[in-house]
């Protein structure tokens, strides 16, 4: 389980995440749980749209990971303080796979997962 950020665009740990559908799907769930979907949802436009193959801050593995972890606005100076490293790997894998997910499929997956607590509507652990 990775404890550290990727050490470059060709980090050898990448394949285990980016080419494993299970890891990608886990990334998708964290993507909604941490509330990423509230801004980067299916209908996001412009720079917020992560599925359009246009990467303002660079699309390489270390660039995407680094941006989410260290420089993402909103969370003070990135999400690394809130999200453990393995989940960041999974989220990165999901985000980098988004261009390959057709809009219908993304919508369908979201439909299955709307029942889950996401970002703002999470009311704490079930008692």
């Amino acid at each position: 389980m990775p404890q550290t950020a990727p050490n470059g665009a060709q980090d050898s740990r990448a394949a285990a995440y980016e080419r494993n559908l299970y890891q990608v799907a886990q990334g998708g769930r964290y993507f909604t749980w941490y509330g990423c979907g509230s801004c980067h949802g299916r209908s996001a436009k412009g720079p917020l749209n992560l599925g359009d193959r246009v990467w303002v801050h660079g699309g390489a593995l270390d660039q995407v990971y680094g941006f989410i972890a260290e420089r993402h606005p909103g969370a003070t100076a990135g999400y690394a303080a809130r999200i453990p490293a393995e989940q960041l790997w999974q989220i990165t894998a999901y985000v980098r796979n988004l261009p390959r997910l057709t809009p219908e499929k993304r919508r369908r997956q979201d439909l299955d997962q709307v029942g889950e607590p996401q970002g703002s509507n999470w009311t704490g652990p079930v008692r």
Binding site: Y22, Q109, D110, D112
Partner: peptide, 8 residues
């Protein structure tokens, strides 16, 4: 077993 939870 749906698309949201059973990738692959």
């Amino acid at each position: 077993s749906g698309p949201g939870y059973a990738p692959g």
